[in-house]
Design a binder for these strands. Structure first.
Length: 574
DNA sequence: GAAGGCACCTTCTCGAATATTATTATTCG
């Protein structure tokens, strides 16, 4: 279902985890992790490659290439199956709890036979962890905290995973004979940051063929419900997908209804009643006669209620109806407005694609400009040096205008230290076209310290963008506890843009913070933070999030022409 | 297990933070 590269990545990562859990060679585990990342970020479909082609991927050698071939041919790998047999899947699940790593997970399994999150909760309640070597009261607290965090995400999945499934289902069903329309709706169409289940709509006179095709999709693991109007399945990855087939003339009403949000629908229905109508998923009807007024398109229905069409990303009952009535809906930013990506990495630090590949891929997306912003020296593990970044600058200059005349900017992603300090002195920073600055560690400082830290970074004249401002990771880690109102005010004062990071695990800032920040008159930059050419298309999720935050293109610096952008990037130029 | 220099052997993020009690082990970025 997912790209074969992603399936292979998941398999190799699983094997790496299992090697670590079973106390195997740490370097071997790391070798599998590196190969997993390289394959996940590799642009060519691995199922089209043989052993030789696979070995051309960096960090993939003979042994891993052969395992990949075995997997693609048979659907499994004997070495992986062997370890799977000795370690229950639930033990690996324990690794997803923050503060629990492979060593502690194995201790829990060997000493207490704990092999699931639920069993771990039981063990903690029975106070059985206390007797284990290396476990104490704080360990219990941290584990409980971590589990609570995971459960809050409550089975919802990330936007990109849901999108992959939805687009494949839509493509499949669009090919079925009699299909007059097919689209995904629900929270996915509204671009919410996590998705509970996927809703797909089909417009057709007869439903049977669609229900058949849907139930028979290769990644359908279980058919939950099978009826004339609605069929629900669960995919092999556990995601529920609902299909509804509507008569073609109910398309607009159905799309409106199933897109939601519930709160938005209630508002629209109330308006319908006030106008003497009744609105359902089948259409807008005259209340008295019961005759249908309109139902064909969303525009028709909104228009009858005196409203312009409202973009799905705004349908959250956050004032969109009042704004629409006043003719004050924002002219939302769209993906086509983006002229360049201002936060990306290469294999000089932790990316997996080379500089030239990144630049070529960006040019293929039609960008007018593109910034390379590899990590700076204070993120020690990336081993950046002055010499390396200056050598990269030479290469960047040579690539400027070489691909479809796209301008290439040389930047860096600085690390905001515990005191708000940055990696390089100002005279060195002056050599970059732009600097992104981000927090990467020390998340647990006090609110005052965190706030001061971010404000100090904003105040550096060479810092143009604060990267992933809250540093949250969806379902894994909450954002840092800074006083963001103070940070937003500092950004407005100093002319520092806030990033809307498009990576589906981040989406940072999120929609609600964008709405708050906007009120301070801050500018934004919608960036991908791509670590591979395959991440560049994540831009759509950042733009979707920006739309949910009611952003217009004027507020987003990377929709601007290069000259205007350069003025903004110049110290004191904002 | 991969990759580089060499034909088999060596190196492969590094440092901080945290929880633990062992002047240590584990996790994280």
């Amino acid at each position: 279902m997912a790209r074969p590269n992603e399936e292979v990545e998941a398999l190799l990562q699983e094997y790496a985890d299992l090697v670590a859990i079973t106390g195997g060679d740490a370097f071997k585990a790391r070798a599998y992790e590196k190969a997993a990342r390289a394959i996940g970020g590799f642009p060519t479909d691995v199922s089209k490659l043989d052993v030789k082609g696979l070995r051309d991927i960096p960090n993939v050698g003979k042994s891993i290439a052969e395992k990949v071939v075995e997997f693609l041919r048979t659907g499994q790998v004997s070495d992986v199956e062997e370890v799977r047999a000795s370690v229950p899947a639930g033990v690996r699940e324990l690794l997803t709890i923050p503060t629990l790593g492979p060593k502690k997970a194995m201790t829990l399994y060997e000493e207490l036979r704990v092999s699931s999150v639920d069993e771990l909760l039981d063990a903690i309640h029975d106070k059985r962890l206390r007797d284990l070597k290396g476990f104490g009261e704080r360990t219990e607290e941290n584990v409980l905290h971590g589990i609570a965090l995971m459960q809050k995400a409550g089975g919802r999945i990330l936007l990109n995973s849901a999108m992959d499934v939805a687009e494949q289902v839509v493509a499949e069903l669009s090919r079925v004979k009699g299909c007059e329309g097919c689209a995904y709706a629900g929270s996915l169409r509204r671009m919410r940051e996590t998705i509970g289940d996927v809703d797909v709509l089909v417009a057709a006179e007869r439903s049977a063929a669609f229900m058949e095709a849907f139930s028979g999709l290769p990644y359908t693991a279980e058919v939950i419900a099978h009826g004339e109007k609605k069929t629900s399945i669960r995919t092999t990855k556990g995601l529920q997908v609902d299909l509804r087939v509507l008569p073609p003339d109910s398309w607009g009403a159905g799309l409106l209804y199933f897109t939601g949000s519930k709160a938005h629908n209630i508002r629209v229905r109330e308006m319908a009643i006030r106008h003497g109508y009744k609105l359902s998923e089948y259409g807008l009807f005259h209340a008295k006669s019961g005759k249908k007024a309109v139902s064909g398109t969303e525009e028709d229905i909104y228009a009858k209620l005196g409203l312009p069409w409202i973009p799905p990303t705004l349908r959250e009952d956050r004032g969109e109806i009042a704004a629409a009535l006043k003719g004050e809906l924002p002219e939302l930013i769209e993906e086509g407005d983006i002229r360049g990506d201002l936060h990306t990495h290469t294999d000089l630090t932790d990316g997996v694609s080379g500089l030239e590949d990144m630049v070529a891929a960006a040019a293929d997306r039609g960008y007018a400009y593109f910034a390379i912003t590899d990590h700076a020296p204070n993120l020690y593990m990336q081993r950046m040096t002055d010499q390396k970044i200056l050598a990269q600058r030479e290469k960047v200059r040579a690539l400027d205008g070489k691909h479809r005349r796209m301008h290439v900017l040389h930047g860096t992603e600085l690390n905001i230290g515990p005191e708000g300090d940055l990696d390089w002195p100002d005279d060195f920073l002056a050599g970059f076209d732009l600097c992104v600055a981000s927090v990467h560690s020390h998340f647990n400082q006090s609110r005052e310290e965190l706030t001061r830290r971010l404000v100090r970074a904003c105040e550096n004249p060479y810092v143009s963008i604060i990267g992933h401002p809250t540093t949250r990771q969806i379902g894994k880690r909450p954002g840092i506890d800074a006083d963001f109102d103070e940070v937003f005010a500092a950004c407005a004062r100093t002319g520092t843009a806030l990033e809307v990071n498009s990576h589906p695990e981040r989406l940072d800032l999120g929609d609600e913070e964008i709405l708050r920040a906007k009120r301070y008159g801050v500018k934004f930059a919608v960036n991908t933070d791509a670590h591979s050419v395959v991440h560049l298309p994540y831009m759509r999720f950042g733009v979707g999030t920006a739309q949910r935050g009611w952003l217009t293109k004027d507020e987003v610096i990377n929709t601007w022409p290069l000259q205007k952008l350069r003025r903004f990037l110049r110290p004191g130029g904002r």
